[in-house]
Design a protein around this nucleic acid. Structure first.
Lengths: 330, 330
DNA sequence: TTTAAAGTCGCAAACGTTTGCGAGAATTTT
DNA sequence: AAAATTCTCGCAAACGTTTGCGACTTTAAA
């Protein structure tokens, strides 16, 4: 069965295509009676406007692209979910592609987006040292780009991200309040700007407000690494009494080590992390965490996107605030 | 800056649009020298074919739609990730929408898909009692539909799903081997066919091969419910010595209760679940589980989709097999 | 040298919409 | 009753491709 088109409707009704088109969108030029007829027939033949023809004609695709490192991720999936929700409510559809942390894939994805003339793209950088040339060209073509989470340092882009410094500082505060003597602070991939921000804010705060606390900094880019590092530190003479985890991934590794070594939380060791809350609440006692909501970030990103699409350029860097959620691990 | 089109290229090269078009796709009619020139200019003006024009002309969108109840879900996100990967490798782009378990949203989503003339849709039913009329009409329009995970009973559709019965039976086998006396089996939403399949297979197997084991069946549609039920049963005189969890969600609730009540696993209680493995490995000891891989299912679904698109109708129900993964909880 | 066959390329229609403009019919105003 | 409005509606071009067909030019065969 072939799709019903305006032409088909026009033929059956002995009207012109333009009249049918206008009738369907309630144009004042058309009389109420013809509108009724047109709508009735359209209904019964279940006419669906061809999005491609519309987009070709109007040069407006009503499709937004999203690039994430991985869909299968506790943070990004909630981000995506939020963006999807907002998009649908605003008449946009989403095209989601994953870069798999591979810049080459990222380029492929952008190409697909360009070919599909998306109205805008949400992008999360897949790698640390990124060539931003492509994104600049997107902007030249007037395709707004909203970076989220892992954003470029460059100031020529619209960016939304968590208040990374605040997150790290809030965690540091709690650690100090806990009267920690020796803390192990685990951060993610050193090359990522998000890591740098969190780390430097954390270090500076600890330095400034509790210089006497001994702080071991380490980096882990996977759960396994985090687990290994934790075990190593737990084997030392001076075991850490508090551990800070920058991401869920790290927390998972840390907890594996802690559980295996049967270290008691929080009596023998305190644990605090930055997370959206899902993973921390899986453990017992619940892990205390500074909340970063992918959902909130998604909503914010969408607002920015809309502003960019409608109001021309608005280059700003917005952050969504964090809050501390008490578990039982500190 | 306006997008570069074939027309633009043609003008600059003093060629016809058709020649440019053919040159770019390496058509034998065009001489090597002109091809070279065309490609060079296309390159420098970074020409990107307009997907909408192509789709309008060729009536082939190269876009696949995916409907999931929720993106933010440990099973579905890995399914999506797999489908996305396969799709990109085969020149398809993905449009992902979530129904939020709401049939109304599902209809909206399908409408978007139809308007975008997707080449096919992967669908996971959002609700138990579903009106399949829409899907039938999609098939009439020759838009292949591949159902996954939560599939209709109707035999007029292509379906892929986990080997639900096998999963449940494998779990039952392990429970019997463990020499359980009293087991608590927790299943999900009773109306879902996936629940029914797993439950009836589980019950029948237990009945047939270990009728003496006392089996309490309960349903929970959230972690909270599962937690409450577990606590209730743990408070009885005859505590269960083994608990079976049909989903991750249930497992999480069960483990909350177990941890809170400080019940020892596996000495006081054995735990087994059906999962993709992520959640079970978070606990210590790791929870033993029957593996259902969203990733595998995604790949299978894509194969089926391709077969449907290319080879016309192939209505079958395929299942991906399961395997048991030993944790330390049994 | 003529004829046939390749080798190159352009014309034009089509895909399904939207929209400025103009035209005829019905209505209202002088 | 003529003139000015207002209602309805159709014409036709445009969006950027693809593709069958025909035409011209060059090369190979007779």
């Amino acid at each position: 069965m072939t799709n019903t088109t305006l032409k088909l409707l026009a033929q059956q009704l002995q009207l012109s295509i333009s009249t049918v088109s206008r009738a369907l969108k309630d144009h004042p030029d058309i009389s109420a009676s013809t509108k009724a007829k047109v709508n009735a027939l359209a209904q019964s033949l279940d006419y669906e406007p061809n999005a491609y023809a519309i987009q070709l004609r109007t040069q407006n695709s009503k499709i937004l692209g999203v690039i994430v490192p991985a869909i299968s991720n506790l943070f990004y999936d909630s981000f995506i979910a939020a963006v999807e929700e907002e998009s649908r409510n605003n008449g946009y559809a989403l095209m989601i592609l994953q870069s798999s942390h591979n810049p080459e894939n990222e380029l492929d994805n952008l190409k697909i987006f360009r070919q599909n003339r998306v109205s805008g793209v949400f992008a999360c950088l897949s790698s640390s040292s990124e060539n931003l040339e492509v994104y600049k060209r997107m902007n030249e073509r007037e395709i707004p780009v909203v970076f989220f989470d892992i954003v470029p340092k460059d100031n020529h882009f619209t960016k939304v991200r968590m208040a990374d410094e605040r997150c790290a500082i809030m965690a540091a505060e709690k650690i100090i309040k806990r009267n920690a003597k020796k803390v192990l602070a685990l951060f993610g991939d050193e090359a990522l700007s998000i890591t740098q921000k969190r780390k430097s804010a954390f270090q500076k705060f600890m330095q400034d407000f509790a210089p006497k606390i001994h702080c071991s900094i380490a980096h882990a880019s996977s759960s396994k690494e985090a687990e290994a590092i934790t075990k190593k530190f737990a084997g030392k003479i001076q075991k850490p009494d508090t551990v800070f985890c920058m991401t869920d991934e790290i927390l998972i590794g840390v907890m594996k080590a802690i559980q295996e070594l049967e270290i008691k939380v929080p009596s023998e060791i305190g644990v605090i992390s930055i997370s959206n809350g899902f993973i921390p609440n899986l453990y017992y006692p619940h892990i205390s965490y500074v909340e970063t909501s992918g959902h909130e970030l998604g909503k914010l990103a969408f607002i920015q996107m809309l502003a960019n699409i409608k109001g021309g350029k608005t280059l700003t860097e917005l952050t969504v605030d964090a809050k501390y959620v008490e578990g039982g691990s500190m």
